[in-house]
C-alpha cells in the first residue's frame, strides 16, 4: 500500500492531528470573538477564517523552538502554533492588562511575544517584512541555524517595504521565508485590481529568489513548500517567496460589511473549499479522525475556548497610569 500524503512528507498521524487541532482552535476562537463582538463585549475582530491551513501548515514546517516569526494580523494559526495560548489571545481580544502581546495597547491581531520569538508588529501593513529581514541578517552574521518567517496579505505585497525588504534579502541571500497569504481581497479591493502579474510569487524573480504558489487551503502543500524553503535557507541558499492562495471567509473585520463589494455566491463557493472541512475529510479518509476522536477534539476545544473567554472577560484592565509607562527606559 502506498504511503499516505502526510507520511510521504515525514509527518506522523499525531502530527497531522495536532495540525488539525491547531487549525480548529484558531477557527473556534475566531468564531467566539465575533460572538463577543456582536454582544458588545469586545471592540474589534480581525479574522483568520479561511487561512488557518496556510498558517498552521507553514508553522509546522518551521522549527518552533528556534525560528522567529513576524506575523500579520490574521495569523492566529501561526501564533497558536508558536506557543501563544487561547487565553492569551482572548486577553488581547478584550484588551486586558495581562495580554502578552501589548497589554492591550495595540489593536487585536498585533501579535508579539518575546518568549515565543514572535516579533511585535505595527499597524501600517508590511512593516514586518524588513524587520524579519533584519532578524535573518543576524542569523547569517552569527552563523546560527534559525530562519525568520514573515507573513502578509497579498494587498501588502504592493507596499514599498515588501520590495525593500525582499530586495535586501535577495542581495544578501538571507534565511528569510516570506509567505503571502493571498485571500483575494485587500479589504474591498479584489486581487485583479491589486496586482498586474498573474501570481504574487511572480515577483520573486525580481529579487533573485524562488517564487512558489501553493494551495493555501491544503496544509500539507503549504507544509511541503515551507519545509523546502527552510532547508534552502538553512543551507545558505537564501530566501524564498511563497504565495498561499486561499479565501477570506469573513468580512475584513468586525467593522466591515463585505456585501458591499462581493457576491454571496462567491463566498458560498469558497466555503466548499474551507480547509477545516477538507482537511477533516482527509483525516477521516486515512482513518485518523475517527468519530470518537472528533467528538473528543470538539469537546476539548470547546472547553479551551470557554475557559479562555471566562478568564479574559474577568481579568482586569490595565491601570490608567500604565498608559504612561514604557516610553523611555526607566
Amino acid at each position: 500500500m502506498s504511503k499516505e500524503r502526510h507520511e510521504a512528507l515525514g509527518l506522523s498521524d499525531d502530527q497531522v492531528l495536532e495540525m488539525f487541532k491547531t487549525m480548529l482552535l484558531a477557527r473556534k476562537l475566531d468564531e467566539r470573538m465575533w460572538l463577543l463582538n456582536r454582544a458588545g463585549k469586545i471592540p474589534f475582530v480581525i479574522s483568520c477564517q479561511g487561512q488557518e491551513a496556510a498558517q498552521v501548515g507553514a508553522s509546522f514546517a518551521l522549527d518552533r523552538d528556534k525560528d522567529y516569526v513576524a506575523p500579520y494580523y490574521r495569523d492566529m494559526g501561526v501564533v497558536l502554533a508558536f506557543g501563544m495560548t487561547a487565553t492569551e489571545l482572548m486577553l488581547s481580544g478584550f484588551a486586558k492588562a495581562e495580554d502578552p502581546n501589548s497589554g492591550g495597547r495595540q489593536m487585536p491581531g498585533h501579535f508579539g511575544q518575546k518568549k515565543n520569538r514572535i516579533l511585535t508588529g505595527s499597524s501600517p501593513v508590511t512593516t514586518q517584512v524588513p524587520h524579519a529581514v533584519g532578524v535573518a541578517l543576524a542569523a547569517k552574521m552569527e552563523k546560527k541555524d534559525f530562519v525568520s518567517f514573515v507573513t502578509l496579505g497579498e494587498g501588502s505585497s504592493n507596499q514599498g517595504d515588501f520590495h525593500e525588504g525582499l530586495n535586501f534579502a535577495g542581495v544578501h541571500k538571507l534565511p528569510v521565508i516570506t509567505m503571502v497569504e493571498n485571500n483575494k481581497y485587500a479589504i474591498s479591493v479584489p486581487i485583479e485590481k491589486q496586482i498586474a502579474s498573474k501570481n504574487v510569487s511572480d515577483r520573486a524573480q525580481g529579487y533573485g529568489m524562488p517564487g512558489i504558489t501553493v494551495d493555501g487551503n491544503d496544509p500539507l502543500a503549504v507544509y511541503e513548500a515551507v519545509k523546502d524553503a527552510r532547508e534552502r535557507a538553512i543551507n545558505g541558499e537564501g530566501p524564498t517567496l511563497i504565495e498561499a492562495v486561499s479565501y477570506r471567509l469573513t468580512a475584513h473585520s468586525s467593522d466591515d460589511d463585505d456585501r458591499q463589494y462581493r457576491e454571496s455566491d462567491e463566498v458560498e463557493e469558497a466555503k466548499q473549499k474551507d480547509s477545516i472541512i477538507t482537511f477533516a475529510a482527509y483525516l477521516k479518509e486515512v482513518g485518523i479522525l475517527t468519530e470518537e476522536v472528533e467528538k473528543e477534539l470538539n469537546q476539548e476545544i470547546g472547553s479551551i475556548v470557554n475557559e479562555a473567554t471566562d478568564y479574559a472577560e474577568n481579568a482586569p484592565y490595565a491601570d490608567p497610569e500604565d498608559a504612561l509607562k514604557y516610553v523611555y527606559e526607566e
Binding site: L119, V129, P130, V133, G134, V135, L137, A138, G165
Partner: peptide, 9 residues
C-alpha cells in the same frame, strides 16, 4: 526596518 529587526536580535 532592517535596523529594527537587528535591534530585536
Amino acid at each position: 526596518g532592517l535596523s529594527i529587526g537587528l535591534a530585536l536580535q
